[in-house]
């Protein structure tokens, strides 16, 4: 066990956990932030996508010990009132079916649009390729990313 100080969604948090604990389980088990989802545990489905500073990372394979002073952003901290342009675009296109993967999809999309304000279809597909949606909302996700790009 070791003590770690984290900056999550702009708030400082202290947790006492095994240094190998992935951030996913720190968030879900220790901080009661369950918006970041568990899907595979091997960085293969993208359901656990969060931002480390501005980079999208897979929280299920990211040990707490390597976070250092980088800032963590989760779906809960993406916007104050749930009105980030990407979240709004998701609602406008009524993207979710079961909804389980969508937090991860949104976090990946936000990171994409920070790097590339006006991505092409190919660029959207390539970046979003790592996020699985078992319900098959891919065409809507692509449309929502394009709408968000226009509104950002």
């Amino acid at each position: 066990m070791a003590t770690f100080n984290l900056n999550i969604n702009g708030t400082n948090q202290t947790v006492d956990v095994d240094p190998t604990t992935p951030i996913l389980w720190v968030l879900r088990d220790h901080l009661d932030m369950v918006g970041t989802k568990f899907g595979c545990g091997i960085a293969s489905c993208g359901a656990c996508t969060i931002h480390l500073d501005d980079t999208a990372v897979r929280a299920c394979v990211l040990p707490i010990s390597v976070v250092g002073d980088k800032k963590i952003t989760t779906i809960e901290g993406l916007s104050e009132s749930g009105d980030h342009p990407v979240q709004k675009a998701w609602l406008e296109h009524d993207v979710p079916q079961c909804g389980y993967c969508q937090a991860g999809q949104i976090m990946t999309a936000v990171a994409l649009l920070k790097e590339n304000a006006n991505p092409s279809d190919d660029e959207i597909e390539s970046v979003m390729h790592g996020n699985l949606c078992r319900c098959g909302t891919y065409t809507r996700i692509k449309a929502a990313v394009k709408t968000a790009a226009k509104n950002m």
Partner: peptide, 9 residues
Amino acid sequence: DGQKIVTGK
């Protein structure tokens, strides 16, 4: 449930 889904509730 859309709003809850996109805000991680």
